[in-house]
Write a protein that binds this DNA or RNA. Structure first.
Lengths: 152, 152
DNA sequence: GTAAATTGGTTTCAATTGTTACCAGCTTCA
DNA sequence: TGAAGCTGGTAACAATTGAAACCAATTTAC
C-alpha cells in the first residue's frame, strides 16, 4: 500500500465517528423530543414490536447492547407501562417482555417518524449508493469486530 | 417513497451506529494499549502535528470536539510533557499549543500504526468502494448536521 | 475611557455509561 | 441428592461525558 501522510480529516475512523455521532445525535434528539425515549429504550421497543415475548437476553443479542443497558431500559419502560413482564415458564430467572397496548400504540406513532427521519437523512444518497453504503458498513463493522476479537 | 415496514436491523441510523462503535472501539483500544492515549488526546496530537501552534479553540473547530474535551486532553498531555503551551501574544487568555520533542517522537511512532490499522479495517473495501463510502459518509454527516441545526 | 457584552478556557455538577460484584435459579455430574 | 459451576438479571461503583456556571481577558458601543 502506498505511503501516505496521516491527515486527521482524511482518516477514516475519525470520519466515520463524526458522521455516526451527527446522525445518532439527530435521531436521538428526535426520539427524545417527540416521545421522551432514549435510544436504548427505543431499540427495545423496536425489537419487541418485531418479536413479541423476547427475553432481555435475546434483545441484547439482537441489538448489540450490553445486558445492563437492556436491563435499565426495560425497567424504565415497564415503569412507564409501555412494556409488560410476564414470568418465563422455561426459566424462573428471566421474564418474557412484550409491548403493552400503550406500548404498541406508541410504536405505531414512532415507526413512521423514524422511517421518515431515516429517509430524510439518507435521501442524499441515490438508491444505488445507499445499497453500496449499507454493504460497506457491514463489511467494515464485521472486520472491526473481528480485529478486536468480538463475537459477531 | 415506498412504504416499508420498520425493521431495526435494516434501519440505517442503527447500522451506522453499530459499525462506528465497533470501529472506534477497535481503534480506541489500540491507542490505549499501545500508547496510553485516549481518543481525544490522540486527536489533539494529530492536529498539532499538522498545524503547529494552534489554540485549543482552533483544535475544537477542526475536530468537532467540545471545548471541555479539548481542555481536558490538553491538560493531560501537558502534564505528561507531550505538548507545550506558550502564551498567545495576540490574546492573553489563550495558549498556543505545540508538540514537545517527546510529543513529536510519540507521533512519529503512532502515525504509522494508525495508518496500518486504518488500512487493515478498510482493506475490506476496494479502492473505488472506499472512495464512494467516504463521500457517502460526508453527505450523510452534512445532512444530519443540517437537520439538527448544527454549524458545520 | 469605561460599562456592557463576548469569548477562551477551566471548574463544577449532573447525567450516562460501562465494569464488577452479586443474587437467584438452573444445569451438570458424581 | 447435592455440591460446583454457569447464566439471567440487578445493584453498586467508578469513569466519561456534556451543560451550565464561572473567571479573566478582550472587544464593542457609547
Amino acid at each position: 500500500m502506498a505511503r501516505k501522510p496521516l491527515r486527521l480529516d482524511q482518516f477514516m475512523p475519525y470520519r466515520l465517528s463524526v458522521a455516526a455521532n451527527r446522525v445518532s445525535g439527530a435521531v436521538a434528539s428526535a426520539y427524545d423530543r417527540l416521545f421522551a425515549l432514549s435510544v436504548p429504550e427505543w431499540r427495545v421497543i423496536a425489537v419487541l414490536a418485531e418479536s413479541e415475548g423476547a427475553t432481555q437476553n435475546a434483545i441484547g443479542q439482537k441489538t448489540a447492547m450490553d445486558k445492563v443497558t437492556v436491563s435499565r431500559a426495560a425497567i424504565s419502560l415497564a415503569g412507564r407501562g409501555l412494556i409488560e413482564r410476564s414470568p418465563n415458564p422455561r426459566d424462573g430467572r428471566s421474564h418474557m417482555l412484550s409491548l403493552s397496548r400503550e406500548g404498541r400504540n406508541l410504536y405505531r406513532r414512532i415507526a413512521p417518524k423514524a422511517l421518515e427521519l431515516e429517509a430524510d437523512i439518507f435521501s442524499v444518497l441515490s438508491q444505488e449508493d445507499l445499497a453500496r453504503f449499507r454493504e460497506a458498513l457491514d463489511h467494515v463493522a464485521r472486520k472491526a469486530a473481528e480485529l478486536s476479537g468480538k463475537r459477531d
